Simulated assay, not measured.
Amino acid sequence: MPHPGWAAFSFDGIGTSWEISTPGTLDGGQRRRLLDVVEEYDAAWSRFRTDSTVALAAREPGRFRMPEGAGALGRLYRVLYRLTDGAMTPLIGGSLEQLGYGPGYSLRSRGIPLAAPRWDDVLDWQDAAVTTTAPVVLDVGAAGKGQLADLLAAELRSQGVSEHFIDASGDLLNSGPAPVSVGLEHPYDPGRAIGMISLGEGALCASAANRRAWGDGLHHVLDGTTGTPVRTVVATWTLAGNAMTADALATALFFVSGKALEQDFEFSWLTVFSDGSAAYSAGFEGVLFE
Rank of each mutant, 00 (worst) to 15 (best):
V140F: 12
G141W: 00
A142K: 09
A142Y: 04
A143E: 00
G144T: 02
G144Y: 03
K145D: 04
K145Y: 10
K145R: 14
K145W: 08
K145M: 12
K145L: 12
G146R: 07
G146W: 04
Q147A: 07
Q147R: 15
L148D: 00
L148E: 00
A149L: 08
A149S: 12
D150P: 10
D150M: 07
L151Y: 03
L151A: 08
L151K: 01
L151I: 01
L152Q: 03
A153E: 03
A153W: 02
E155Q: 13
E155S: 13
E155W: 00
E155G: 13
E155N: 11
L156T: 04
L156K: 02
L156S: 07
R157I: 12
Q159E: 09
Q159A: 12
Q159L: 13
G160Y: 06
S162N: 15
S162D: 15
S162W: 12
H164Y: 09
I166K: 03
D167H: 05
D167G: 05
A168G: 06
A168R: 03
A168W: 02
S169N: 08
S169D: 07
G170A: 09
D171E: 14
D171N: 12
L172E: 01
L173T: 00
L173Y: 02
L173A: 01
S175W: 05
S175I: 09
G176W: 00
G176V: 09
P177V: 10
A178Y: 11
A178V: 14
P179W: 09
P179T: 12
P179Q: 11
V180M: 06
V180E: 02
V180R: 06
S181I: 11
S181G: 10
S181Y: 07
S181M: 10
V182P: 02
V182S: 00
V182H: 03
G183C: 13
G183R: 15
G183T: 09
G183D: 04
L184W: 03
L184V: 05
E185A: 09
E185M: 14
E185R: 12
H186P: 00
H186F: 11
P187G: 11
Y188C: 10
Y188T: 12
D189F: 13
P190F: 14
G191C: 11
R192W: 10
I194P: 02
I194S: 00
G195L: 05
M196T: 14
M196V: 14
I197K: 01
I197L: 08
I197A: 01
I197Y: 01
I197M: 05
S198H: 10
S198R: 08
S198N: 11
L199Y: 01
L199P: 04
L199F: 06
L199T: 01
G200T: 09
G200Q: 06
E201A: 15
G202N: 07
G202S: 11
A206K: 04
S207Q: 07
S207H: 05
S207F: 04
A208H: 03
A208T: 09
A208R: 06
A208N: 04
N210V: 14
N210R: 15
N210L: 13
R211Y: 09
R211C: 01
R211A: 05
R212Q: 13
R212S: 00
A213V: 11
W214G: 00
